[in-house]
Write a protein that binds this DNA or RNA. Structure first.
Length: 415
RNA sequence: CGGGGUGUAGUAUAUCGGUAGUACGUCUGCUUUGGGAGCAGAUAGGCCGAGUUCGAUUCUCGGCACCCCGACCA
C-alpha cells in the first residue's frame, strides 16, 4: 500500500489523558482511535493486525474441528431469563425498542448458541462437535481502563463444544489447551504466556486461563518454573503448591488474561433442555465446554510486551505489513522510480509492503517507521542508489545491513 | 459503584476576574532533504448549564466526559 493514500496519520504526541502504553502507541501510530472510554475504532493499520490475529485463531480453531458461524449481538430478553442471567449479570447492556421490547447486547453467547444447536442435536450420532465465532461482545464495565485491554465493546473468539459425556469433553478440553498454547505462540506471546489454574471449573475443580506476564496486567499469578504453568491468586489461597507438579517453588508475577477455557458441563444445556438420545434411546443432557480469546486484548498485550521507547514492534506473523519501504527523497526521481520498481516487484510476489512515497524529510519518515513497528524497513535513497544496494533494518533488533536485490527478496520471503 | 484528578484550536500546552499566547499540525510561497527542518504569511480554541460580578475561560454549584486508585470482570 502507498502510504500517501493512507487516510490516517501518525502523530507526534499521544493524547494527554492516555496513560496505558498500548493506547498511547496505538493512537499515535494511527492504529486505533478512541470513540469513548473502552470503545475503540480499528483504523486500517490496526485492523490489519487484528485480522492477522483473527486468521491465526481461525486456522487453529478449524484445525480443532471448529465450525465457524456468526451469531447476532441483539439477544431477546427471554433467552437470558431462561438462565437467570438477565437479573444476575450486572454488566449486561439492556436495550429496549420503541414498543418496549427488551434485548441484551450479547456479552457472551451461551444463551444463543445452546438454543441454536438444540435444533440440530437429537442423537448421540450428532455429537461431538464444536462451533465458534468472532464477535463483538458488550460488557458494561464500570471502569474501562488500560487502553484496549479492558473495553466495553470488544471482539472475542468464542467457541463452544458439545459432547455426549464428561470423558469426551475432558479429552477435547485437554486438546484445546495445546491449541491455545499454539495460538499464543504464533501471535508472538508464547514465551510469556502460561496455562494458569483458576477457579470455576464445574467438575475438574479448576478452569484454565492463559495469562501473559506483563506489568500492564491486572491479575496476580504464581508461576511454576519447573513445569511452566501458573496458579491464579484465587487458587493460591487454598493451596501453595503447583497443581501440576506439586512443586512449592512458585513466584509471583503480574499478568493479563488473554484467553480462557471452561468446562461448562450441563450448566447451559440444563436450562434450555439441550439433550440427545443415547444408544438405548435414553435422553441424556449434552455436556459443554467453552473457549474464549479476546482479539483486541492480544493485540494490546503484544504492544505492551514488545513495544519500546520508539514505538510499536510487531512480530512478523501479525504485523500490518511485512516490509516498510521508505524512499528518501521523493524529489529525486531516480530514487522514487527505484522505490516503485521494488514495490511492484515485491507486491507481485505477495509480500505485503507499505511504501512511504510521501514527500517528507528523512527524520520524520524514520521516526514514523519506528513508531509503526513494521518488522523490516528498507531505505532507498541517493546513498543506497550509489552503492547499488538496499539498506535493510530489523525493527526489533535495530540491526542494519546493506544487501543486494536477491538477498533482500530472500529476506522478505523468510519466516 | 466508592475515592481522587483533569476538561483551553486537530494535537500538546501557557497565562489571566477585563484583547486568550506558544509549539506541532493544516493551507500558501520560497529554501532545505539520512533521524520529527528554516523563513514569511494564513488557519483555528475556553465541555454544557446555572450562580456571583459592571464583566467569568478564570470564582461557586450542578451536569457531562476522560484518566487514575479500589471493588468487579475476557
Amino acid at each position: 500500500m502507498r502510504q500517501s493514500k493512507l487516510f490516517t496519520k501518525a502523530r507526534k504526541e499521544a493524547p494527554a489523558d492516555e496513560v496505558a502504553k498500548n493506547a498511547k502507541l496505538l493512537i499515535r501510530a494511527g492504529f486505533v482511535d478512541k470513540l469513548q472510554a473502552g470503545v475503540y475504532t480499528y483504523l486500517p493499520l490496526g485492523l490489519r493486525v487484528l485480522k492477522n490475529i483473527e486468521n491465526i485463531i481461525r486456522e487453529e480453531m478449524n484445525g480443532a474441528g471448529g465450525q465457524e458461524i456468526l451469531m447476532p449481538s441483539l439477544h431477546p430478553k427471554e433467552f437470558w431469563q431462561t438462565t437467570g442471567r438477565w437479573d444476575t449479570m450486572d454488566d449486561l447492556y439492556k436495550v429496549s425498542d420503541a414498543s418496549g421490547r427488551e434485548n441484551a447486547l450479547g456479552p457472551t453467547h451461551e444463551e444463543i448458541v445452546v438454543p441454536l444447536v438444540k435444533q440440530f442435536v437429537s442423537s448421540y450420532r450428532d455429537l461431538p462437535f464444536a462451533t465458534y465465532q468472532f464477535q463483538n461482545k458488550f460488557r458494561m464495565e464500570l471502569r474501562a481502563k488500560s487502553g484496549i485491554l479492558r473495553g466495553r465493546e470488544f471482539i472475542m473468539k468464542d467457541m463452544y463444544s458439545f459432547h455426549r459425556d464428561e470423558a469426551d469433553l475432558v479429552a477435547y478440553y485437554e486438546m484445546m489447551k495445546g491449541v491455545y498454547a499454539r495460538v499464543f505462540e504464533r501471535v508472538g506471546l508464547g514465551e510469556r504466556t502460561y496455562l494458569t489454574f483458576a477457579s470455576g471449573g464445574s467438575f475438574s475443580k479448576y478452569s484454565h486461563e492463559f495469562q501473559t506476564v506483563t506489568p500492564a496486567g491486572e491479575d496476580t499469578i504464581y508461576v511454576c518454573d519447573t513445569c511452566r504453568v501458573a496458579v491464579n491468586k484465587e487458587i493460591i489461597a487454598d493451596q501453595s503448591t503447583c497443581p501440576s507438579c506439586e512443586s512449592g517453588d512458585l513466584h509471583e508475577e503480574t499478568a493479563i488474561e488473554v484467553g480462557n477455557i471452561f468446562d461448562l458441563k450441563t450448566k447451559f444445556s440444563d436450562p434450555f433442555k439441550l439433550t440427545y438420545k443415547d444408544e438405548e434411546g435414553k435422553e441424556q443432557p449434552v455436556v459443554m465446554g467453552c473457549y474464549g480469546i479476546g482479539l483486541g486484548r492480544i493485540l494490546g498485550t503484544v504492544v505492551e510486551v514488545l513495544g519500546d521507547d520508539k514505538g510499536l514492534v510487531w512480530p512478523r506473523a501479525i504485523a500490518p505489513f511485512a516490509m516498510h519501504l521508505v524512499e528518501i527523497s521523493s524529489a529525486n526521481t531516480a530514487v522514487h522510480e527505484e522505490a516503485e520498481k521494488l514495490y511492484r516487484e515485491l507486491s507481485g510476489q505477495g509480500v505485503e509492503v507499505l511504501w512511504d512515497d510521501r514527500e517528507a524529510r528523512a527524520g520524520e519518515k524514520f521516526a514514523e517507521s519506528d513508531l509503526m513497528g513494521i518488522p523490516l524497513r528498507v531505505v532507498i535513497s541517493e546513498k543506497t542508489l550509489t552503492e547499488g544496494k538496499f539498506e535493510i533494518k530489523d525493527r526489533a533488533t535495530g540491526e542494519v545491513s546493506m544487501v543486494n536485490r536477491a538477498e533482500l527478496i530472500k529476506m522478505c520471503a523468510m519466516k
